[in-house]
Design a protein around this nucleic acid. Structure first.
Lengths: 234, 234
DNA sequence: GTTATAAGCGTAAAATAAACGCTTATAAAC
DNA sequence: GTTTATAAGCGTTTATTTTACGCTTATAAC
């Protein structure tokens, strides 16, 4: 259908502006973090905010999200999921803008941590999020809630942890998500019983004298488990 | 801020059309049902579809949903929740339209069942949904999935069941949602242990000689339970 | 009165989760 | 080179939850 012909059917509809805002989670030794940016445009210039962009006419919404992530973190193939729609009529005083919030999970490493500084961005610990513009604090609260919920039935930790990780590291992630210290021994038992981890021969010795064995996620076994249906309850 | 001043900040953004589509669930003796409509406009005139409407400039998105429900079912105060955003660039051949799918749960009674016929609408059993326009079948699949998920940690059945209901009726609802026959005795035990139902003295005798006691949902007790945190696992 | 059946009640067994004592490997201290 | 401190790892016991299923009950239909 030609562009001219398009939209003759729905002629009476009023178009609105649509944006995608990204809640970018990262995780490292210090815990769960969130990437925030100093806003570059008015209104609210120089205030802390999530990073976002308008959706282009020719762009799928998830493409907008990945475009944002690529531009500001340099990463492609990031775990990105729709969180929800923030469309209150008066949410942005500058214009009627509907934002489709998305949350992303990325593996943190030194490179990542430095890269972002060039965008006047900063990784904030999850307990030290500042006041943000518009409804961005609300979005973050919802994202955390969803992350918790998702972690119950999907091994979401694997998107955030490094490729090789130790069981205590994995536990630390779940402790952060659920804001609860799990029992070290029961946690280990439960996660190993799932039979989705492959034990490596290497150890990580950065956090203890004894060192902890590194593991890798066994995708094949995991997919099998998902099909059978399971429930991460920690 | 005046309308003229608005949007000078985001001048480069291209506005798009936003619609809300509603997946309307109902439940009666026959089981879980879905309300579908014969589309009134081109393209796809006279094909079965969900009911929807464009979002107005001055309207919150949830208001659009409630407006649709009011107009086509006559009901206000309906349980309505955002399902997700369907915004693929080519989802509608007639124009770039982003749809925010919502799902609604309504109590079915005779009046409801008749009312809808005036809109060339029809209640379809959940296992006999026809082919719908655009991505509407996808939306329904996602809505069912979400309904299942939600039913685990929210007593969602109470939105769909009549004010007074029997335990076998409630079980029937969960059987339908999870597509699994639960054990009658364990189901009863579990739901009663939650202590959120108020037993009435009346019985419903339409489904058995013995009759089943009617119950009502005790909102006060339920709210207490929600705060404490719980998990419907059937 | 007998019968058939959905509704309702209770108990035993199986599975899962929680609590927690003990051992081990290793770097650092002496 | 011996001791010490500690995170990591291993295993058992107890408590809780889930599942399976036998038995009783109220009532309409015959």
């Amino acid at each position: 259908m030609s562009k001219e012909l398009k939209n003759t059917f729905y002629g009476n509809a009023q178009p609105l502006m649509i944006a995608v805002d990204c809640i970018i989670f990262g995780f490292d030794k210090e815990g769960l973090k969130l990437l925030l940016f100093k806003r570059k445009i008015d209104p609210f210039k120089d205030k802390w905010s999530l990073i976002g962009s308008f959706v282009d006419q020719e762009e799928n919404i998830s493409e907008t999200g990945h475009r944002i992530l690529k531009e500001y973190t340099g990463l492609t193939n990031v775990f990105l999921e729709e969180l929800g729609c923030y469309g209150k009529q008066d949410r942005d005083p500058a214009a009627r803008v509907i934002s489709i919030a998305h949350f992303a999970l990325i593996r943190l490493n030194e490179q990542q941590l430095k890269l972002v500084e060039s965008y006047e961005a900063h990784w904030f610990g999850i307990d030290e999020i500042p006041d943000l513009i518009l409804d961005h604090n609300k979005m973050i609260a919802a994202a955390l809630e969803k992350l918790r919920l998702k972690a119950r039935y999907q091994p979401i930790g694997f998107e955030l942890l490094p490729k090789k990780f130790t069981i205590p590291q994995l536990k630390k992630f779940y402790d952060a998500i659920y804001q609860k210290k799990h029992d070290r021994r029961n946690f280990r038992k439960k996660i190993l019983d799932m039979d989705i981890l492959k034990k490596l021969t290497e150890k990580d010795k950065t956090t203890s004298r004894k060192g902890a064995f590194l593991y890798q996620f066994d995708k094949r076994k995991y997919n099998k488990l998902v099909k059978k249906g399971f429930n991460f309850t920690f």
